[in-house]
């Protein structure tokens, strides 16, 4: 079995091209209004024609997403380490961490704008709020699942708590953390776009503007850019975990 990039990327590419082609034909044949559903070729044309505004918007959204993700991974890991410190701390605080999971981001985005003002800080905050929970929950699960025999080994050699954290518990939690980050990456894009609806800037504003001008093709183009961003982040985290875990985790590596 070959498992080169072609074998992995080929099938989804073929289905993508076929799906887009079929869509194009169907929309033409059914004569659907471009206000409802523009042809893929029209979306592509809009994406190219408006690239002067789309590309800087993509860059702004990407920057907010990356900063939000950086915040949610650092603060999320720190929160998980603190929660794992004792069952009491976990019992007292974990229910409130779940707040980040259930908070309706659309509803609190205006609040974030009130707190952080219009612009990128509110957008970063929105990306952070929706993406931090999977990092906390997964890292915590990893920290709590450390092999008891290895804990014993560290205790037997009088390892300090810091040494155990650094040399055993955090590396042990790494695969869990990376799974959490993969989920967080997609959520951060959603959070940023919603944040931009309210706080301004980036692809979110393009989507809103295009909607008001009834430029459905441009809405689709902006959505495509945003999806591309999410996909790229997802792939980047996947690549990072493949590299980080290539030696040791059954789910990764080339055996």
């Amino acid at each position: 079995m070959s498992s080169g990039p072609l074998a992995r990327l080929g099938p989804p590419l073929v289905t993508f091209v076929a799906g887009v082609g079929l869509g194009e034909l169907a929309i033409r044949a059914l004569d659907v209004s471009p206000l409802i559903l523009p042809r893929p070729s029209a979306v592509l044309a809009a994406a190219l024609a408006e690239s002067a505004s789309l590309l800087p918007a993509l860059a702004a959204t990407a920057r907010a997403v990356l900063v939000g993700l950086a915040l949610s991974s650092t603060l999320g890991i720190a929160a998980a380490v603190a929660l794992a410190a004792s069952p009491w701390i976990q019992r007292a605080f974990y229910p409130y961490a779940i707040f980040f999971q259930i908070v309706p981001i659309v509803a609190i985005a205006p609040l974030l704008v009130i707190w952080f003002g219009y612009g990128s800080r509110a957008v970063v905050a929105a990306a952070f709020v929706v993406s931090v929970f999977p990092v906390i929950a997964n890292t915590l699960a990893g920290l709590r699942s450390v092999d008891p025999a290895l804990r014993d080994l560290f205790r037997l050699h009088r390892a300090s708590g810091l040494a155990a954290l650094w040399k055993l518990r955090l590396p042990w939690a790494l695969p869990y953390l990376l799974t959490g980050l993969r989920i967080a990456a997609g959520l951060a894009v959603i959070g940023a776009i919603v944040g931009e609806f309210v706080g301004g800037g980036g692809l979110g504003v393009i989507v809103l503007g295009a909607m008001r001008q009834q430029r459905t093709d441009l809405v689709f183009a902006a959505v495509a850019y945003a999806s591309g961003l999410g996909l790229a982040l997802f792939a980047a985290v996947g690549l990072a975990s493949r590299i980080a875990l290539r030696h040791w985790h059954a789910s990764e590596g080339d055996r």
Binding site: A149, H157, K167, H247, W248
Partner: peptide
Amino acid sequence: MVFQDAHLLPWRDVLANVALPLEL
């Protein structure tokens, strides 16, 4: 102590696993 299974650190190579107690 030697446990029922090897219980090595999967992210470390053999040499670093054996050096671990000295490190600690």
